[in-house]
Nucleic acid binder design. Structure first.
Length: 302
RNA sequence: GGUCGAGUAGCUCAGUCGGCAGAGCAUACGCCUGAAAAGCGUAGGGUCACCGGAUCGACGCCGGUCUCGACCA
């Protein structure tokens, strides 16, 4: 049976290794990376992108979809991934989603209707957010769409602006686009989560960051800075990149930059765990010391 | 050895005239619908280096001890 398989977990949990090992034992498996940063070309080391050898051995999707100068979006990812799923199904192969970005995964597993964009409306709202504060915008949202307003903190300018953008721009309440993310209907995906102890994960992150530095992450960032087109707002927020950009532009020492990468990557990993762990559909595997050995047998039985 | 400065949350540091011990970061927990490796919220955390004294009351004042730093010998 070809029910898509989802392997998920925090950064440095060994998802990709598990996926590759599984694909080696199961003919016709194709990998879809569900990762908001591996979509950028030439951002390879810092995003822990699968190697050329891995990509030759097993077909990969969801990677190198955009230039680092482009602003990428969830919707763009969703379209590309759905297309890949259709193609993989047509080949009667099995899709293996390797997921680190929770929101991106939900748009695939749980068909969601993502509202459109109204850039002019948004630009105006962002100005107002700076001028009068997000509380004032939240008050307006509370009148136009009380349900949406109740779902978010008045202090969260990002979400308040977006909800108003949709409601004002599209003439339809933001909250009408779905019940929110805390609904977990049964879906045709087998989802397996990789779980390490905090201490073990912290160690793995440190080892990985240092390995990236040795593999030439600094040079990769330097090359990106030297490109004609500057990195987009979304690409620039990639962990490991923004900190090294700060260093290369003289704002921090290298040591300081690497320390910041370690702290932020740890925080990111925890945020990923927190996102995934509330989804009751995920089967968690607690890993003692070898992700491949401990998880692949379970996948082969699924 | 002498002089001066410092010692307050895991870290960096505020703390006015003596009146319930503070911030940022970190940590834990929660939220998340076209930026999501982004953004937002809540919470825990203290023998104010140590010992003694004066005071109704000390992180603060007085005496001593210890540790660190700078300078002088």
């Amino acid at each position: 049976m070809n029910t898509p398989l989802v392997i998920l977990g925090p950064t440095a949990s060994g998802k990709s290794d598990v996926a590759m090992a599984y694909a080696a034992r199961r003919a016709g498996a194709e990998i879809i990376a569900v990762d908001a940063m591996q979509v950028y070309r030439r951002m390879d080391i810092g995003t822990a992108k699968p190697t050329a050898a891995d990509r030759t051995a097993v077909p990969h999707h969801g990677i190198d979809l955009a230039e680092p100068s482009e602003d990428f979006t969830v919707t763009r990812f969703e379209r590309a991934a759905r297309q890949s799923l259709v193609e993989i199904a047509a080949r009667r192969a099995r899709a293996v989603l390797v997921a680190g970005t929770g929101l991106y995964l939900r748009t695939i597993t749980d068909p969601m209707e993502i509202p459109g964009r109204w850039p002019e409306v948004r630009a105006e709202l962002e100005l107002r957010a700076v001028g009068e504060g997000s509380q004032s915008l939240h008050a307006q949202l509370a009148v136009l769409d009380p349900v949406a307003a109740a779902r978010m903190e008045p202090s969260n300018a990002r979400r308040v602006v977006r909800a108003l953008e949709v409601t004002l721009g599209g003439g339809r309440q933001f909250s009408s686009f779905g019940p929110g993310l805390d609904q977990y209907p049964s879906v045709p995906y087998v989802q397996v989560g990789l779980q390490w102890s905090r201490a073990a994960l912290t160690q793995r992150i440190a080892a990985r960051v240092h390995a990236m530095m040795e593999a030439g992450l600094l040079a990769e960032v330097e090359a990106l800075l030297a490109e004609r087109a500057p990195m987009s707002r979304t690409a620039r927020q990639a962990l490991g990149y923004k900190e090294l950009v700060d260093h290369l532009q003289g704002r921090t020492s290298l040591h300081q930059a690497v320390n910041t990468i370690l702290v932020r990557t740890r925080q990111f990993a925890v945020r990923q765990e927190r996102w995934f762990r509330r989804d009751p559909r995920i089967r968690w595997v607690t890993i003692e010391h070898d992700a491949v050995a401990e998880v692949v047998p379970i996948l082969l039985r699924s």
